[in-house]
Amino acid sequence: MAKILLAEDEEVLRMLVVDTLEDEGHDIDEACDGEEALEMIKQNDYDLILLDYMMPIYTGLEVIQQVRNMPDKKHVKIMMLSAKSQQADQQRVLEAGADYFMAKPYSPLELVQRIEAILHGEDA
């Protein structure tokens, strides 16, 4: 069981991811925007953070930048979920400090598989 944060402004998508991951037995926290996400990251230690790109207040990109500037959060695993799936967008996200990237629309099962792999240190 892993502690995972999901930051996503679309309620239905939150429901989709949360339901899927909870079925796998993970503990999921939810954030609706960038600010909320940052607040929760500061207060908790997550095994994995799932960030939407287009979020109010702070975008996923801005959240990553701020998290990477936190001394104790340099190595927390971050996966970006984005509808901006072009090569350049992906590149920008990874350069900003995200570890993984998944394009929307994504398959929840694929997401679960990917997360399992990451949590078990299999995904490079």
Binding site: L13, A83, K84, K104, P105
Partner: peptide, 18 residues
Amino acid sequence: VSHELRTPLSSVLGFTEL
């Protein structure tokens, strides 16, 4: 537009898959 379209599509696809 791409983002706006993908979001509902993600839900439709995701829930359907589930």
